[in-house]
């Protein structure tokens, strides 16, 4: 399978990876279908995602998506972060092989899980909870 340069760059030099110390929230996604595992760590202050990191067990595209997502989320408000869709990641990459489209969906889902975890832990003001 050949991937374009953007995917390869994020895979080769992933941004914001690794376990975070004292995160505000963690989203752990375990995809039963393809076997990928994505963990997203968030540090949130006054609704702003000040820091984000990921740990991913998955294919090159899954890792690239995790990395790209963190760069798109960092510094955003929770509301803004929740607006990010899988198609935004795919658009950013340009060309993604059909069998790998779901990797972007997984990354977005892992982020939502992390944000859910943030609200579950503390604030109850979040109503747009998704599964």
């Amino acid at each position: 399978m050949s991937y374009n340069e953007k995917i390869i760059n994020h895979f080769k030099n992933p941004k914001n990876y690794g376990k975070m110390k004292n995160p505000s929230a963690v989203g752990k996604l375990d995809n039963k279908n393809c076997g990928d595992v994505m963990w997203i760590y968030l540090k949130i202050k006054e609704d702003i995602i000040e820091d984000i990191s990921f740990e991913t067990l998955g294919c090159a595209v899954a890792i690239a998506n995790s990395s790209l997502l963190t760069t798109m989320v960092k510094g955003k408000t929770i509301k803004e972060a929740l607006k990010i869709k899988d198609k935004d990641l795919i658009k950013e990459f340009g060309q993604v092989p059909k069998v790998k489209l779901h990797c972007s969906f997984l990354a977005v889902k892992a982020l939502k899980k992390a944000i859910n975890n943030y609200y579950e832990k503390g604030s109850s003001s979040y109503v747009g909870r998704s599964r």
Partner: peptide, 14 residues
């Protein structure tokens, strides 16, 4: 354990 074969193949290919 803990890593995925496809990612490893791509990494080696690079």
């Amino acid at each position: 354990s803990g890593i995925e074969g496809e990612a490893l193949v791509i990494k080696l290919d690079l």
